[in-house]
Simulated scan of single mutants.
Amino acid sequence: MTDESAVTAPSESARRQKTRERLIDAAYEVFSEHGLHAASIEMVAEAAGFSRGAFYSNFESKEELFFALAERENGLRLARLKLAVEAQHHVARPDVVPLNQATVETLVGAMLALQADDTRWFLVLGEFRLFAMRDQAVARRFTARQHEISVELAELITLAIASVGARFSLDPYIVAGIVSTTYETAMQQAILSGVDDADSAAHVIAMRTLPALIFRLIEPA
């Protein structure tokens, strides 16, 4: 390989990655504004500043684009949660701090504080979930990825609760499902209420139930 080709290959790869990122960014905007069903490939490509051909050079379909968007957004949320868990481990003093509901409330509040843009993602994800229910091939892939996310979430909340000297009395995977469902219910209530800042409202609603719920699902380690 010549020096010129060695430079060109990474450059082309970088350009392709930037193109994909712009398409994913555009998809997020278009999906959240118009809905997944109404959003066309042409609308996404135009919003990203590309042609239909450029879209198909990077993604096979609108569904494929959604999965790329989901991978990014879920990854960001899990990364934020991981940061919160790691920070908690640095300051935790389970030998000093009592294991009570107030301690769990502080822990849950720290986890929720780092989450952002959940309203928009909740709406897009909800639409795709309905779409997946009508397409078995998409449903299998969607369900498989949601399972992987639940496994990762279970690992993180297990580490988080260990920082206060506790462990779950149920399978952490089951607890992860309960936590996710409770938070999604809070998001739904916040959005339907019509408040301007649904993210903050959802956090308030979740804090009314999650700490007490989690406290009843843990025991001293």
Results as ranks from 00 to 15, higher is better:
8 T>E: 13
11 S>V: 12
11 S>R: 12
12 E>T: 02
12 E>G: 02
16 R>K: 10
16 R>A: 15
19 T>E: 10
28 Y>K: 03
28 Y>A: 10
30 V>P: 00
30 V>A: 03
31 F>D: 05
36 L>S: 04
39 A>S: 09
39 A>I: 07
40 S>R: 08
45 A>F: 11
49 G>V: 09
52 R>G: 01
52 R>Q: 01
52 R>D: 01
56 Y>I: 02
59 F>Q: 04
61 S>T: 04
63 E>C: 04
66 F>Y: 13
69 L>F: 13
71 E>C: 02
72 R>G: 00
78 L>E: 08
84 A>C: 06
85 V>S: 01
85 V>G: 02
87 A>F: 00
87 A>D: 00
89 H>G: 00
90 H>T: 02
90 H>P: 01
92 A>Q: 08
96 V>H: 10
96 V>P: 04
97 V>E: 03
104 V>Y: 02
104 V>K: 01
104 V>G: 03
105 E>W: 02
106 T>G: 08
107 L>M: 13
111 M>E: 01
114 L>R: 00
115 Q>C: 10
118 D>S: 07
119 T>F: 09
119 T>G: 10
120 R>I: 07
120 R>V: 06
122 F>D: 04
122 F>L: 11
126 G>L: 12
127 E>A: 10
128 F>K: 07
128 F>G: 05
131 F>L: 10
131 F>Q: 05
132 A>D: 04
136 Q>V: 12
141 R>Y: 03
141 R>W: 02
141 R>A: 02
143 T>H: 15
144 A>V: 06
147 H>G: 06
148 E>N: 13
152 E>S: 15
152 E>Y: 01
155 E>L: 14
156 L>I: 10
157 I>G: 00
159 L>R: 00
160 A>R: 03
165 G>P: 01
166 A>G: 07
167 R>S: 13
171 D>H: 14
172 P>L: 11
178 I>K: 07
182 T>E: 10
182 T>I: 11
183 Y>D: 12
184 E>H: 11
185 T>A: 14
191 I>W: 04
192 L>S: 12
193 S>C: 14
193 S>L: 15
193 S>I: 14
195 V>N: 01
200 S>K: 13
200 S>C: 06
201 A>P: 05
202 A>V: 06
203 H>E: 14
204 V>Y: 15
213 L>Y: 07
217 L>C: 11
219 E>R: 11
221 A>D: 07
